[in-house]
Design a protein around this nucleic acid. Structure first.
Lengths: 100, 100
DNA sequence: TATATTTGACCAAATTAAGTCAAGTCAATA
DNA sequence: TATTGACTTGACTTAATTTGGTCAAATATA
């Protein structure tokens, strides 16, 4: 599940048109179309609005948003999965030693 | 293990000074210092040079390089680990359906 | 045909990349 | 203790890339 898929799912589940949702977010509907197709990433602040409109946990949307950013980096990388492992190791290491 | 740590390890293992390695890479030694401390990310093209100088597999350096990019995104994210899971799911999904 | 969505080309503004340089720190030593 | 050599840091720069869109035309879809 990508963020775009999630947004589309929420919108359709609420029988809303792109035009309607786009106007709530104050963007053009062409832009929203791209967002739902993961051709663009929505502005992070918009997640709050989505969370309110669709009564969906903000954390869930945020995790998808961050995942999109991560995926954009690794999608064409041969070493993508290996890199994920290393990044996970790094975050766990830093959590352990509270270096942040 | 971060990319910076790896580079320092390789350099010290070969008893090379920052100044020396920096000149091989044609950058300043202040910059290399930051790279080894993960305050800056080395240019990707430099990985080939490092791989040659230290006879270290390029793939390994590349995985660390990509991991650094990923880690930079998630390091301050509460949902970092969750996002890694989602990104992994996405890459596996796409590998399965060969959508790339 | 009308309505909804997608796409491509384009854009300004903001951010990041890829460094430099000089001053500062730190340890060993003459 | 003054010096030296290796490294670190902070402030800065310039160019390239990304962000966050718009709009009109093309394309489904009913």
């Amino acid at each position: 599940m990508t963020l775009g898929q999630k947004i589309r799912e929420l919108r359709e589940h609420n029988q809303m048109l792109q035009r309607e949702l786009a106007s709530k977010l104050e963007v053009g509907d062409g832009y929203l179309s791209k967002i739902e197709r993961d051709q663009k990433v929505i502005k992070r602040e918009h997640l709050k609005t989505l969370s309110t409109i669709f009564k969906c946990p903000l954390k869930e949307l945020e995790a998808l948003w961050v995942a999109t950013k991560v995926y954009d980096i690794i999608k064409y990388e041969e070493t993508g999965l290996e890199a994920l492992r290393v990044a996970e190791e790094q975050i766990k290491y830093n959590e352990t030693y509270a270096k942040i």
